[in-house]
Amino acid sequence: MEPFFAIAVGGLAAAAVYLMLSGELLRYIFGLVLLSNAANLAIFVSGRLTPGAPPLIPEGAYAPAGTVANALPQALVLTAIVIGFGLFAFALVLTFRAWTTLGTLEGDDMRVAEPKVTK
C-alpha cells in the first residue's frame, strides 16, 4: 500500500512543480494546492496504513489489540486541510484583486512594486 501512496505523493508534487513554474499566478496557486495535498498525503501515510483495522480499544484494555493506524496524523491532516483551505481562499481573492488592480496574472509583468531600472 505504501509504495502506491509514495508514487501518488511524487506524482502530485511533480504536477505541482510543473504548474508553479508556468509563470502564471492562477496556475501557481493551483500548483500550491496540489503540493499541499501531496504533503497531507505524506503525513497520512506516516501514521501507518491498515485497511480493515479500526483503531478501537477493547473494553478494559489500555491499548488496541493488533496493529492499527495511528489516529494522530489523521487529526493533523484535518487541521492542515482546514488551514490550507483558509489560505487558499485568501490566495484566490488576492489573485482576483491582482487581476483587477494590475490587469495581469503573468509573473513577469508584475513589476509595480519593483519597477525595472531604466538607465
Binding site: 499541499s36 501531496a38 503525513i43 488592480t101 509595480v112
Partner: peptide, 27 residues
Amino acid sequence: IDGGVKYVALNLIATVLFLAGVGLLYG
C-alpha cells in the same frame, strides 16, 4: 497587491515544506 502576491506565493511554499517535514519527522 503586487508585493502581496509575491509574499503570499513564496511563504505558502515554506508552509507546505514545514508541514511535510513535520509529517516525516512524526513518521
